[in-house]
């Protein structure tokens, strides 16, 4: 649906120039929710603004829905932009227009009669659950309500693509979730392709199918959300994942000699984590039974990403040395990640 090829964007002339996006090639499939994550200044906004040419790339081509936008006349580009909706961190609603007026704005000149416009606006407002605020002005709405209106407005011309630049960054966690689920629902109901820019891994985890990680203007890692979570390769990606997982807390427990992490001789602390989507056996109890071991779970953080569990468990294993070895081999065979965090076994 969206093909970005060798996109670069440099701001400013001369020595003070900033290379905000460097040679990015991305392919975004139709009907997917695609996340772009990165720290502040990574170039996410610049990249997404290149998709509808709000920012014209210094190099590279942009193809949306089989149309090369980078080669269009300004009139053709305006027509193409109507098929690409966009929502923003600060909503960007017009204060002088009511909710109805804001959503009707992009329908002006679309050839629809006044009556049809009203009908369309009302159905859009119902779609985003804000029909009752039709006559309100933006200043009378909460952040979440404003974003709903902005979404309705972005959808007015039945776009194939919806670009969201930090659409939930100004909202509280609960409202963020509601908006994310609205986006997900629209994606499922209408098959619209959604591009989500964020600096929160939780957002990616919540709704994205694929994710690209940006750092210093480049996409350093890209893939299915589950596999990025299970096997992050780049340090930035690991940093992001750490922000949403509690599993790292064990390091702190060890560091401060917490009583829950005290080992007796012969015991060890292991971290067991999901690396694949299809792990469904009750592994802990199997291991415990099969190898006659005690597994004392001291910590666990498992959640569902893309309908599969992800995260893991930190446990103290005690039992016979040989059996422990075998158990670990068995787990690895079953596609579970195993990492020994602390070891109090006596070396032979």
């Amino acid at each position: 649906m969206i093909e970005l090829t060798n996109i670069s964007k440099t701001f400013g002339p001369g020595p003070g120039q900033v290379e905000a996006v460097k040679d990015v090639t991305l392919s975004i499939e139709k009907g997917k929710i695609f996340g772009i994550i990165g720290f502040s200044g990574a170039g996410k906004s610049t990249l997404v603004r290149c998709i509808n040419l709000l920012e014209s790339p210094t190099k590279g081509t942009v193809v949306v829905d089989r149309q090369e936008l980078t080669s269009l006349s300004s009139k053709e580009l305006r027509a193409a932009r109507k098929r690409i909706g966009m929502i923003f961190q600060h909503f960007n609603l017009m204060r002088s227009r009511t909710v109805f007026g804001n959503v009707a704005y992009p329908l002006h000149g679309s050839g629809l009669s006044k009556k049809d416009i009203a009908k369309k606006v009302r159905s859009l407002l119902r779609l985003v659950d804000i029909a009752e605020k039709e006559k309100a002005y933006p200043s009378q709405l909460s952040g979440g309500q404003k974003q709903r209106v902005a979404i309705a407005r972005a959808l007015a011309n039945d776009p194939k693509v919806l670009l969201c630049d930090e659409a939930t960054s100004a909202l509280d966690p609960q409202t963020t979730n509601a908006i994310l689920h609205l986006l997900k629902r629209l994606n499922e109901q209408m098959g619209i392709t959604v591009v989500v820019i964020t600096h929160e891994m939780a957002v990616v985890k919540e709704i994205c199918d694929r994710v690209a990680v940006m750092e210093k203007g480049q996409v350093v890692e890209e893939g299915e959300v589950f596999s990025i979570f299970a096997n992050p390769c780049q340090p930035v990606t690991k940093d992001f994942i750490r922000t949403t997982s509690n599993l790292q807390k064990i390091d702190e427990l060890l560091k401060y000699n917490s009583p829950v992490a005290q080992l007796k001789p012969g015991e060890l602390i292991v971290k067991l984590f999901y690396v694949q989507k299809n792990v469904s056996e009750p592994l802990i109890s199997t291991v415990s039974r099969k190898f006659d071991l005690d597994l004392n779970i001291i910590f666990s953080d498992i959640e569902i990403v893309q309908n599969a569990p992800i995260g893991g468990t930190v446990a103290i294993i005690s039992g016979e040395q040989r059996q422990i070895e075998k158990a670990m081999e068995y787990l690895i065979e079953k596609n579970v990640g195993v990492e020994v965090i602390a070891d109090a076994r006596v070396s032979e």
Binding site: N52, L54, R78, A79, A80, R81, K82, I84, G85, M86, F88, H90, N92, L93, M94, R95, S96, R97, Y105, P106, H108, G109, A150, R153, A154, A156, N157, L163
Partner: peptide, 27 residues
Amino acid sequence: IDHGLIEAALSMGSSPLEIIFRVYLKE
């Protein structure tokens, strides 16, 4: 007028003339 409004209008495919009358002046 917040530049974000102009961006939003551009992203909706508004022409410069439309932006002048329907955003700048109206707002």
